[in-house]
Design a protein around this nucleic acid. Structure first.
Length: 272
DNA sequence: TAGGCCATCTGGTCCT
DNA sequence: AGGACCAGATGGCCTA
């Protein structure tokens, strides 16, 4: 999906099979050592025959090993089994969180090609926030302009729900919805060009999250020619008239401008 | 090599 | 009691 797959795949996201089995095996053979804090300290792939089981199967087996063999002997093993179970749950929880993060990345307007590296988690969240703000502002601007036009003539009422205002404003570059615009070739004669609907946005450039990464560092494009946002992401406002959704170019509306420092204290303090 | 990012482990807290 | 959630610690991988 992205160029970061090699990096991601280089480190298995769910090595619980090997880890739990190794831990369980060590526990079963040598007893509980008491020190299990070392991450991935157990060498994986040493038990080929045990590979391929799901986390649930593995967890159940680990619990069975404890309950059948050492039920009377080692309460530490039970504790260890519980610890493994908790760890497994936590891994699953984080995995689900990452799945949701990937889902968010998929709908974000950044280049999805192989030349663009995957957004980091913090970049994804910040970009998503700014993207939502941008869309909200665009929608409000569209409503305002349309109401000005139709409101003055008085012969036609505005029905945003019937028309789909954002579709008239032009698809967002890079966004999956860009290819699903209801009226791709017909531009409403009374509606302003896309640039007009977002002019006020790009004109008020204030960054809400500049403390996180400077110079549009949210994306790490391997090729400098493609720009920091990739070849398919032309840094809106430059060539397309659309505002850049990145944290460097976006202006949160006044009523949310303080949110970045209030609701995301860690983000504001994340600039090391 | 330093720094960024990430996965995982772990203990604590809160909720059902 | 068990599960979800959270944050700190730790170590690995990758890039500049």
């Amino acid at each position: 999906m992205d160029s970061d797959t090699s990096r991601v795949s280089s480190r298995p996201s769910s090595p619980e099979v090997d880890d739990i089995f190794m831990s369980t095996l060590k526990k079963s053979v040598h007893g509980f050592s008491g020190a299990v804090s070392s991450t991935q300290s157990d060498s994986p792939s040493e038990i080929p025959g045990l590979r391929g089981l799901s986390a649930a199967e593995e967890e159940a087996l680990a619990l069975r090993m404890v309950s059948k063999k050492d039920r009377k002997l080692l309460s530490e093993n039970e504790l260890q089994a519980i610890r493994l179970k908790i760890n497994s749950r936590e891994r699953k929880r984080m995995h689900d969180l990452n799945v949701a993060m990937d889902g968010l990345r998929e709908v974000m307007p950044y280049a999805h090609g192989p030349s663009v590296r995957k957004l980091s988690k913090i970049a994804t969240l910040l970009l998503a926030r700014n993207y939502i703000l941008m869309l909200s502002n665009s929608l409000e601007e569209m409503k305002r302009l349309v109401s000005e036009i139709y409101g003055s003539s008085g012969h036609h009422s505005y029905h945003p729900s019937a028309c789909g205002t954002m579709a008239h404003a032009g698809p967002v570059p890079g966004h999956p919805a860009a290819s699903h615009a209801p009226h791709p070739a017909v531009h409403h004669p009374l509606l302003p060009p896309p640039a007009a609907s977002t002019a006020s946005l790009s004109a008020s450039g204030i960054s809400a999250v500049t403390s996180v990464r400077p110079h549009h560092g949210l994306l790490k494009a391997p090729t400098a020619s493609a720009g920091p946002l990739g070849s398919s992401f032309q840094h809106w406002g430059v060539g397309t008239g659309m505002p850049c959704p990145c944290s460097m170019c976006q202006v949160p509306p006044p009523h949310v401008s303080s949110m970045s420092s209030v609701t995301m204290p860690r983000l504001a303090s994340d600039s090391k």
